[in-house]
């Protein structure tokens, strides 16, 4: 509670006295929703380079990564921000799942250990964010408690949220279900892999980063 009050006071002071030089936009969500694919899309479009490695095996991103000074433009508007790609937030991590995905037992145990630390770091970084893009897999059940906990914590910290429903190129994708689960937020369906609707996502950045 005290940290939320402190955070709020800091934000008010930053806005009043112009201390804020850069804003941080975070990518949050459960594992394998496509956070790093979206980060790579943003960085490739505006910086000409990728941000991180992607994989079909969950928890590929196990540490928080920051890309400074991304400038995006839309018409006459310009936005400068640091992009923070975070490890997927999960409530369980079993190294045997990585073994099943084809990794060795040693690699799997190491990955599991790093993944647990990654989740802890992602949660710690929540207080640093000025706005957050919650990346959800539009083929999955949106009512998972992890989704609700992430969005609830952002709401409690008064951090602006944009929900990006990724993987709309897949047959199972169901954006309507996702919109019904979070009717108070703007939900934008994209395919980070193929670039579908990405311009609309950039437009929405200006709204959450105000």
């Amino acid at each position: 509670m005290i940290s939320i009050v402190n955070q709020f006071i800091k934000k008010v002071f930053d806005r009043l006295f112009g201390n804020k030089k850069h804003i941080k936009i975070g990518l949050y969500g459960p594992p394998n929703g496509g956070k790093t694919t979206i980060a790579n899309r943003i960085c490739t479009d505006w910086l000409g380079e990728e941000m991180g490695q992607v994989s079909h095996i969950p928890h590929e991103t196990r540490e928080v990564k920051v890309k400074e000074q991304i400038n995006i433009k839309s018409g006459r508007k310009e936005l400068s921000f640091s992009l923070v790609d975070t490890p997927g937030i999960a409530t369980k991590i079993d190294y045997e799942d990585f073994v099943k995905a084809g990794l060795s037992t040693r690699e799997s145990k190491k990955r599991a250990k790093e993944a647990t630390k990654g989740v802890i770091d992602a949660i710690k970084w929540l207080d640093e964010m000025d706005a957050v893009i919650v990346v959800l897999d539009s083929t999955k059940d949106p009512y998972s408690q992890v989704n609700i906990t992430i969005i609830g914590n952002l709401e409690a910290r008064k951090i602006p949220v944009l929900i990006v429903a990724n993987k709309v190129d897949l047959k199972k994708s169901n954006i309507k279900k996702l919109q019904a689960a979070f009717p108070q937020y703007e939900v934008i369906g994209v395919s980070a892999k193929y670039g579908t609707n990405i311009d609309r996502m950039y437009e929405a950045f200006f709204t959450i980063a105000r």
Partner: peptide, 22 residues
């Protein structure tokens, strides 16, 4: 909400060979 996040964090700290999470 903050306690839910705390629960996830503490769960991650507790994961070991036997306890895989919640």
């Amino acid at each position: 909400k903050e306690e839910e996040a705390g629960l996830i964090r503490t769960t991650m700290e507790a994961i070991n060979g036997r306890f895989k999470g919640i």
